[in-house]
Nucleic acid binder design. Structure first.
Lengths: 173, 173
DNA sequence: GTGAAGTGCTTGAGACTTCAAATAAAGCTC
DNA sequence: GAGCTTTATTTGAAGTCTCAAGCACTTCAC
């Protein structure tokens, strides 16, 4: 994607782009393939077993772990690393399915709480084992324990660098 | 997502699910956060600079490297790890923008070739340096060379396990 | 308090993805 | 070479995501 290309004819006076090395390039493509395939795979499985894409499923899991199984919309969006708008649409959809319910926030009249319903909880109970197996089968059963540690470190580094609050670093242009 | 949960009440006679360990769980969440944030980040940048999501950009790059800058639809879909249907829609959109053109396949009348236009090539030349910088800034400049190697190995392992042809392994249920 | 600015959340339109169904051309078998 | 199956691709509808407004409430400063 970001390779030292045949294009990028360097007759401008821009500073020469630091193209990716061969290894970086191979790694980048492997990353794109792995993440594309894994997301598709999990989406397909959860669509079949729970009738929703896996980000929606993650939303329900997140709620299930919150005190009283409810959270402010903004906190939920931050926890899931998605925009409020996307969350709003997602909750609307999950509300229609009956897995989530909205409640007014007592302390702030602008606020809304997303609440996991009993039906939602029951659905998680049913589908969680299958989902764990899918994640294991695609990821953890294929990696060595060292690789799991490495992947965790790498992902934390990437995620940290992309948190919204780091929004105006130079490479964000 | 796939944790040892409060739900999953184990009063059934199913085999006990192998819940994720703490470290696996942390790694899994870090993975989800990193991939979500990185995809959003690159999408936003490329939407701004090239007017398309980064998978479409990847499509153009892939074409730019092919002999005569053209490829059969099916090969392109496989190379990008996306479905033919998605590719079909994507090419239709890129055709409207003028970056890609379709051609009949001489050897197989069912076939179509996606061809990168000169305008598409020029657009890549313009935007590639910025895109490399974005990928570097978010990923390679933050990882050690060892981590880049590790990430490559890990992603290749994941991707290999999810190739379409491995479609009927037990954990795919 | 009152107005200005900020925060929390939703909405609608347009773009993208998925899934299932449709078309058209190969290839295979008798 | 006539059917049957398979392969290559497209289409349309339904669902999801993004972006830019929009509305309602809160906070801050005077």
């Amino acid at each position: 994607m970001t390779e030292r290309p045949a294009y990028g004819a360097d007759d401008t006076h821009e500073p020469a782009p630091r193209w990716l090395t061969d290894e970086e390039q191979r790694t980048w493509r492997a990353y794109l393939h792995a993440t594309t395939l894994l997301e598709d795979h999990l989406d397909r499985l959860l669509q079949r077993d729970a009738g929703m894409p896996h980000i929606y499923y993650g939303l329900l899991v997140h709620l299930s772990e919150a005190p009283r199984r409810r959270m402010r919309m903004t906190d939920l969006a931050e926890g899931l690393k998605i925009t409020r708008s996307r969350l709003s649409h997602a909750v609307a959809r999950l509300e229609k399915s009956g897995w989530v319910r909205r409640e007014e926030c007592p302390s702030d009249k602008r606020g809304q709480l997303a609440v996991l319903t009993d039906e939602g909880f029951a659905m998680l109970s049913r589908t969680a084992p299958g989902h764990v197996e899918a994640v294991r089968g695609a990821l953890f059963d294929r990696l060595t324990p060292e690789q799991v540690t490495q992947l965790g470190d790498i992902c934390r580094t990437i995620a940290t660098g992309l948190q919204p609050e780091c929004g105006d670093l130079p490479w964000r242009r």
